[in-house]
C-alpha cells in the first residue's frame, strides 16, 4: 500500500512530468490560456495515461518484445480516440477549444514514456498508481501555468464558469500573456523560479 502511495506521489512532485521531466510540452504551452482549458486537458490526459498504463501492464506477458512499441501505440491511440469521442459528445465547447491537442495526446511523450519505462515492467496496481500520479502531476502543472497566464493576461480568473474577482483586478491586463509568446515566457520564468527554490532547499 505504501508503495502505491509512493508511486502516485512520485508523478506529482519528485518526477513531475512538466516541471521536472519537461515532457509533453506542446499541450502545456498551447492550452494554458485559461484555467478551465488546462483542467480539462489534464482530465483527458489522466484518463488516457491511467487506462493505457493499466492495459499495457495487464497484457505485458502476452506481447512479444519486438512489437511492444506498435502495440503500445495502438492501445494509447484507442484511449485517445475514446476521449475524443466522449468529449465531442458531452463537452462540445471545450472539445472545440482544445481542438487538435486532443488527438495529439497520442504522441505526447509522457504517455509512451510511462508505458515503456513503468507500465511494461510493473504489476497492474502499481502501473495504475503511476499513471494516475503522472496524470495528476500534469494537470496540476497545467492549472498552475494557466492560472498565471489567465490572471496576468485578462486580470481575472474564471473557475467553474464564475469569475473569482468580480469585475477583474485593478491592473491593466498584459495581453501578451495569453498570446503564444506569453506561454513560452511564463513557462521559462516558472522553471527558473523552481530552480531558485530548489537551490535554496539544498
Amino acid at each position: 500500500m505504501g508503495r502505491l502511495v509512493k508511486d502516485f506521489y512520485n508523478g506529482i512532485l519528485p518526477e513531475n512530468p512538466v516541471f521536472r521531466l519537461l515532457l509533453g510540452m506542446c499541450p502545456v504551452l498551447a492550452v494554458t490560456t485559461a484555467v478551465a482549458n488546462g483542467f480539462w486537458m489534464g482530465m483527458a490526459v489522466i484518463f488516457v495515461l491511467t487506462c493505457s498504463n493499466v492495459i499495457i501492464s495487464a497484457v505485458r506477458p502476452f506481447i512479444p518484445r519486438q512489437i511492444r512499441i506498435p502495440c503500445f501505440i495502438v492501445v494509447i491511440a484507442t484511449f485517445v480516440t475514446i476521449v475524443d469521442l466522449v468529449m465531442h459528445a458531452f463537452l462540445p465547447g471545450m472539445y472545440e477549444i482544445l481542438g487538435i491537442f486532443i488527438p495529439l495526446i497520442v504522441v505526447n511523450c509522457i504517455i509512451l514514456a510511462r508505458a515503456e519505462a513503468f507500465a511494461s515492467r510493473n504489476p497492474v496496481p502499481r502501473a495504475a498508481a503511476d499513471g494516475l500520479g503522472m496524470g495528476v502531476g500534469f494537470t496540476v502543472a497545467l492549472v498552475v501555468i494557466a492560472a498565471v497566464r489567465e490572471l496576468l493576461g485578462t486580470g481575472n480568473l474564471v473557475v467553474a464558469g464564475r469569475a473569482l474577482f468580480g469585475a477583474g483586478l485593478p491592473i491593466d491586463p498584459a495581453l501578451v500573456m495569453i498570446l503564444p509568446p506569453g506561454a513560452f515566457i511564463t513557462m521559462g520564468i516558472l522553471l527558473g523560479a523552481l530552480n531558485l527554490v530548489g537551490k535554496k532547499k539544498e
Partner: peptide, 23 residues
C-alpha cells in the same frame, strides 16, 4: 545567464521573444 535561468528556462524565454517577432 543568471544561474537559475540556465538551460531550459532561458531557452523558453528566448523562444517567447522569437515568437513575439514572428507575431
Amino acid at each position: 545567464v543568471p544561474r537559475p535561468l540556465q538551460g531550459f528556462p532561458i531557452a523558453l524565454i528566448t523562444t517567447g521573444l522569437m515568437s513575439i517577432s514572428f507575431f
